[in-house]
Design a protein around this nucleic acid. Structure first.
Lengths: 339, 339
DNA sequence: CTTCATTGTGAAAGCGCTTTCACAATATTC
DNA sequence: GAATATTGTGAAAGCGCTTTCACAATGAAG
């Protein structure tokens, strides 16, 4: 016989509740998770016994017997990026009352780390897996396409999601920026992005910008990649662009912070915004309306993404055989004064 | 006999690996989790079989048999608050390679929601529980003090942590602000905070400021609570303070964003910073050095907190009988130009 | 060459739930 | 009033691992 040296804790088990309520453990389980399947009298007895003992079901045991853990894995590139933080915040808020816990993973825009996290997460049999973007390693794709639980790819849009896709087209965001510059009479433009080599979505915006601008004007705009999305880099990048193209009239950025850094630098250099130089951000951070002049930007549907992700997951839980779905939530140009 | 309608997935189980390797499941388990306890030859055989089959252990089953899940629950007031986002980011980065997953909870400064999350988390038998602050409901305290896994209270400092305490004294942060204003010759000051009724740590800074300023000058400064930590509120609050005390010379804020909002408003009103009015933020956000003039602020040890939390948790895992510990990481006045 | 200590391995008993199946106890119908 | 349908409940078999215990097999010591 195997002896386990379980320490002192002695948590209340379902069996204890069953004994107090004078029923079998099976009935306790039913009373707790499918109250309708049990008679009123028993439900009462079980609930009050559970209450009295302070019973909290062991989720690990429940998940093993069940085959699915009430756990949702969410994988994002970065937790400090306010987009993803906002998505996560909203997702926990909506999912926690439903009894699901969020397990988070962060890969810093590294697809191999993403694969490692996906692998680790699937070891937990999560009820759903939410992942950022559409670019993954073959390994990730392999695991995800074999998954028996819903898989959501968020924050980007494209053909054929693995299962459920919810986001918007980053290329379109780039198109909108280019179109806006041309519509407002600028012929010399550039795009400044952060870590474009790693951030595929920023890259897609850059490419979308470049293509559309070129298509409209015949001029292919410069694209610059900064080493980080810090404010300071915006200023550096601006100087660099100006050195190459002193005549530049408009710059689109991959993020508001970068744009803000460029604005600070521009004001230091005595450039008038937007007359000398238009600046267009991306992200619509809270600070936008307060900058001087107020920052024009492109607003991704951040809250809508989280809401839709949760809705689709819950829908799939309710109807496990439902088909996959692919949703483009679109972006919006927020025109303030810098562009 | 109970029949289970397991769906198609048919994941590889330990038993399969055992069969291929020609050993017992017990040996596979040992080879995988305590490689040293098994002979070289077997370890090889097991590893290659596991590799070949693409075996990924079922963490749920492992956790049930084990009695502790490789899961760490982290509870923060908000995920969009960049302090906590940074703490979480660093914690995942450090803990993931150790094989631990983070489960996150968010309670929006509501101790009752905190209790609900703590309850839910302990149902998972997490290897450790990390919680923000030192103020909890009796229920939370009851659960936490019974917990058999390490419990860390972070981002605040005070007497007698439940188990492990890692943070800094928010009262001291307030003292430093008051001292600095007095040292630099200001006699009329105020504190503007966000949701001081809910955020106990901001409240502690406010109280610390008020007490020390009063102690040094005999004048008790006004304390104002804004409804949110948004930038816009900073401007509103500034106007409100100015209406009551037109002679005000210095204001400390509970956050840099609020301070920034006040700076924008001040510049709109034609006030010179810092000559007419000193402004001192809190948080040391990235934007600080770039504002005009650069924002003076108080820097909480954000990275240090995450690092220390992880270190203490891992230490406790290594030595389960180690005593609790209480660490004050201190804060730092970052003097730039606004104060 | 025997005796005792040292590994290394397998059998099997759980971990605390969920769920199927069987079966009593009722409610409904003719 | 008998035959049938409809609940409601309990027994028990797992879910896929970990870990104890027993016991070969080997090495060291006398």
């Amino acid at each position: 016989m195997a002896h386990r040296n379980k320490p002192a804790p002695q948590r209340v088990r379902m069996e204890d509740v069953a004994r107090i309520a004078g029923v079998s453990p099976a009935t306790v389980s039913r009373a707790l998770r499918a109250p309708a399947s049990v008679s009123d009298a028993l439900r009462e007895r079980v609930n009050s016994a559970a209450q009295r003992l302070g019973y909290a079901p062991n989720r690990i045991a429940g998940s093993l017997a069940g085959a699915r853990a009430p756990l949702i894995g969410v994988i994002v590139p970065s937790l400090t990026n306010s987009f993803f933080a906002a998505t996560l915040e909203r997702m926990t808020t909506l999912l926690e009352p439903e009894g699901y816990q969020l397990m988070i993973g962060q890969h810093d825009y590294d697809v191999d780390r993403e694969e490692a996290i996906v692998t680790a997460f699937s070891s937990w049999n999560p009820a759903a897996l939410v992942i950022t973007g559409r670019e993954h390693t073959r390994g990730t794709l392999g695991i995800l396409s074999k998954a028996t639980s819903p898989v959501v790819e968020m924050w980007d849009y494209g053909e054929r999601p693995i299962d459920i896709g919810i986001g918007f087209s980053n290329a379109t965001a780039g198109h909108i920026a280019a179109q806006h510059f041309v519509d407002t009479g600028r012929r010399s433009a550039a795009f400044i992005g952060a870590i474009l080599d790693k951030d595929g979505r920023a890259r897609a915006r850059a490419d979308g910008f470049q293509d559309r601008f070129q298509q409209l004007t015949g001029i292919s705009p410069n694209v610059l990649s900064a080493d980080s999305r810090d404010l300071g880099e915006g200023g550096n990048a601006l100087r660099q662009v100006l050195a190459e193209q002193p005549e530049i009239q408009a710059i689109a950025f991959s993020g508001d912070m970068l744009a803000l850094g460029a604005m600070f630098e521009a004001s230091r250099m005595g450039l008038a915004i937007p007359d000398d130089l238009k600046i267009l951000g991306y992200g619509d951070l809270d600070i936008g309306p307060f900058t001087n002049p107020p920052l024009s930007t492109i607003r991704p549907p951040r809250h809508e993404i989280a809401d839709e992700v949760v809705e689709q997951i819950l829908h799939r839980f309710a109807e496990p055989d439902a088909d996959g779905i692919n949703i483009d939530l679109g972006v919006q140009l927020i025109r303030r004064e810098t562009a």
